[in-house]
Amino acid sequence: AITFRFEGQEKAKKFYEKLMRQNLEATIHIHGDEVHVTVH
């Protein structure tokens, strides 16, 4: 698994949606202002 870190939720959401379109499995974790997107 690879984890990407984002400042702010907007960028993270766009990235997450892009992964979903590519049929990749990903989970999102929100830590205050920092958002972690883990790709499995």
Rank of each mutant, 00 (worst) to 15 (best):
T38H: 13
K11M: 13
T3K: 06
K18W: 15
D33F: 11
F4M: 03
Q22M: 15
E17I: 10
L24H: 05
E25Q: 14
G32N: 06
E7A: 13
Y16L: 11
M20H: 04
T27H: 07
H29P: 00
R5K: 13
T27I: 07
E7S: 14
G8T: 15
K18C: 15
E17K: 09
R5I: 15
H31V: 14
V39F: 14
V35M: 04
E25I: 15
L24Y: 12
H31Y: 13
K14Q: 12
L19T: 02
H29E: 13
E34Q: 09
L19C: 11
V35W: 15
G8S: 15
E10Q: 07
G32I: 05
F15K: 00
Q22Y: 14
E17A: 11
D33P: 06
I28D: 00
Y16I: 10
H29G: 04
Q9F: 15
E10R: 06
V39Y: 12
G32L: 06
H31F: 13
V39E: 02
V39I: 13
N23C: 05
E34F: 12
V37N: 00
H36E: 05
A1H: 13
H36S: 08
K11W: 09
T3Y: 07
L24S: 03
I30R: 07
E7G: 09
Y16K: 03
T38Q: 06
E10H: 06
T38R: 07
D33K: 11
T38D: 03
D33G: 08
I30G: 03
G8Q: 12
V35K: 00
A12H: 02
N23M: 07
I28W: 08
F15G: 00
R5N: 03
E10D: 11
I2C: 14
V35N: 01
G32S: 04
F6I: 04
A1S: 13
R21D: 05
I28F: 07
A12W: 05
K11G: 10
Q9E: 14
L24D: 02
E25S: 14
K18D: 08
E34G: 05
R5Y: 12
F15E: 01
E10P: 04
G32A: 07
Y16N: 00
K18R: 11
E17W: 11
V35H: 03
N23V: 04
H29R: 09
T27P: 00
H36R: 08
N23L: 07
K14W: 12
A1P: 11
E10W: 08
L24P: 04
L19K: 02
E34V: 12
Y16W: 10
T3N: 03
M20G: 03
R21A: 13
G8N: 15
Q9T: 11
H40K: 11
F6L: 02
I2E: 03
V39K: 03
V39Q: 03
G8E: 14
L24E: 02
T3R: 07
K14H: 08
I30T: 07
E17V: 08
F15I: 02
A1L: 12
F4I: 06
K18N: 09
E34N: 05
A1T: 14
A12V: 02
F15Q: 01
E25T: 14
E17Q: 11
K18Q: 11
I30F: 11
E7N: 13
A12L: 03
I28E: 00
E7W: 14
A1Q: 11
A26T: 04
A26H: 03
M20A: 05
F15L: 03
R21K: 11
G32F: 06
A26L: 08
V39L: 13
Q22D: 06
E25N: 15
M20F: 04
M20N: 03
T38G: 02
A26C: 04
K14E: 13
Q9W: 15
N23S: 07
H40Q: 08
K11D: 14
R5F: 12
F6M: 02
K18A: 13
E7I: 14
A1F: 14
F15P: 00
Y16V: 09
R21V: 05
E34L: 09
V39G: 02
I28H: 01
N23Y: 07
K13Q: 14
H31G: 03
K13A: 08
N23P: 03
N23K: 10
L19M: 09
K11F: 09
K18S: 12
R21S: 11
E7V: 13
Q22S: 08
K13L: 15
H36Q: 05
G8A: 12
G8W: 06
H29I: 12
A12N: 01
M20R: 12
H40E: 05
E10T: 06
L19E: 01
K11N: 10
A12C: 06
K14M: 12
A12D: 01
I28N: 00
E25M: 14
A26M: 07
I2Q: 06
L24T: 05
Q9L: 15
T38P: 01
K11Y: 09
G32D: 06
Q9P: 13
Q22G: 05
H29D: 06
T27S: 10
F6R: 01
V39M: 09
H29V: 12
K13S: 06
A1N: 11
K13D: 05
I28T: 01
D33M: 10
R21W: 06
D33R: 10
E25L: 14
A26R: 02
L24N: 03
Q22A: 12
K13G: 05
E25W: 15
T3W: 08
F15H: 01
T3D: 02
I28P: 00
V35T: 05
N23E: 05
F6W: 02
T3V: 14
H40L: 12
A1D: 12
D33S: 12
E17G: 04
V35L: 04
D33Y: 08
H40R: 11
E17H: 08
H36A: 04
